[in-house]
Every structure is written in C-alpha cells, then in structure tokens.
C-alpha cells in the first residue's frame, strides 16, 4: 500500500510538472508572438499614398480658397480648424517611412484633442449658425458621427496588452496599424471636406455680394 502511494505521488508530481511545462510553453510562445504583433510596423510612402494625398489636396484647396476670402471671423475660424487638422502629430508622421501602433494612437489622440475639442466645439459651431436649417442639420449629423467615428479604434488600441490582440487570422481581415491609420485619416479627411464645403459656401456669398 505504501509503495503504491509513493508511486502514485511520483506519477502525480510528474504529471503536474508536465502540465506546468505545457502551460509555461504556451504563455512563453504567446508572449513572444504578442511582442512581435504589437511592434508590427506598416511601411508607407506618404508622397505616393492615395488617401494621404487626397487629404493633403483637400487641405491645400481650402488654404488656397481661404486666401481669396476677405478677413472676417468665418475665415479666422476655418483657418484655426485647418491648423488643427494639420497638427504636429500629422507633420511628425509624414517624416517617417514606417508607422507603428503608437503613431496611430497619437494621431487619434490629436484628432480628439485638436479637431473634436477645439475645431468642432469652438470653431465649427458658430460657423454652422450661418447656414440654412437643412444644411445645418446634415452638417450636425456628420459632425456628431465624426465625434465617435474613431472611438472603436481607440478601444482596439487600448486592448493591445491582451495576448489575443491581432492574431494572424484576424490580420487577414484587419491590421490595427494599417487600417487604424486609414480609419483615423478618413475622419481627418471627412472633417477637411466639411471645411472645404464651408469655404466654398463662403466664397459663393462673397461672389454674390460683388
């Protein structure tokens, strides 16, 4: 009986060790993989990237049209919004050849702080008051949509400590660096299009007054 118990203890100890070894191996491999996943970069050439170029062209068009407008509070508000869109984080990203998850996070944070908090809340709200009721309604809907448009990107980014983040299977559907960048950039582009519309409306007003 005693011999049986001793053998039983030995088998139990060996089995327990085997299980621990298996779990430790799993956590080691998953951590190595996760470390590689979170440090993934996306190579991008901003000079040739179509979506970035579209955004820059829209910004350039707004700036060109703004020079034709006389100095007034509307022009001032739009200029401040344009500088919010063309923020320091965006400028820093253009100087890179590869972007990583931190760049996407900083770009989204800049969008929230500079575009949503400053441009939308302080500058766009007074501009919308000059528009007709129907246009005001559509633009308000669009702005409200843009306020939360990147919130799910933020949730994804904040969740990247979890080892199930960005598995290879998920990568075929969504890469949080590449797709996160384009998602945030599309919000920038949508905002730029609203500003472009407002500038053109303002120019029509100036033309008709002449």
């Amino acid at each position: 009986m005693r011999s049986f118990l001793k053998t039983y203890c030995n088998i139990m100890a060996q089995s327990l060790l085997g299980i621990i070894f298996a779990f430790a191996s799993f956590y080691f491999i998953i951590n190595l993989y996760h470390q590689q996943e979170v440090s993934r970069t996306y190579s991008i050439s901003f000079e040739t990237d179509r979506i970035t170029q579209q955004f820059n062209t829209t910004l350039q068009s707004i700036e060109n049209n703004l020079t034709l407008l006389p100095d007034n509070p509307t022009k001032n508000h739009i200029q401040k919004c344009v500088s919010s869109l063309n923020n320091q984080v965006m400028q820093d990203i253009y100087s890179k050849q590869k972007i990583d998850i931190r760049d996407v996070y900083y770009l989204r944070e800049a969008y929230e702080e500079e575009v949503i908090n400053q441009c939308f809340n302080q500058h766009l709200t007074p501009l919308l008051e000059n528009q007709s009721e129907s246009v005001q309604k559509i633009l308000n809907q669009e702005i409200n949509y843009l306020r939360n448009d990147t919130s799910y990107v933020a949730k994804d980014l904040l969740n990247n400590s979890s080892f199930y983040y960005n598995t290879a299977m998920a990568l075929t559907v969504k890469d949080n660096v590449r797709d996160g960048y384009y998602e945030v950039l599309s919000s920038y582009q949508q905002t730029a299009l609203i500003l472009d519309y407002l500038v053109q409306e303002e120019m029509k007003g100036v033309d008709s007054s002449l």
Partner: peptide, 28 residues
C-alpha cells in the same frame, strides 16, 4: 498586462510547490 499575466504564473508557482512536496513524499 502584468495583472493579466500574474494569475496563471502564480498557479504555476503553486504547481511547482505541490510537485516538489509530491516528489519528496514519493521517496519517503
């Protein structure tokens, strides 16, 4: 990340302790 990972690692440490005891018992 640390608190997420610490729970399974603690279980492994307890496992190492128990297996040590079982090895000692198996030799008597």
């Amino acid at each position: 990340y640390f608190s997420d990972m610490m729970a399974p690692l603690q279980i492994m440490l307890y496992g190492l302790f128990i297996s040590n005891i079982l090895f000692i018992l198996s030799k008597g």
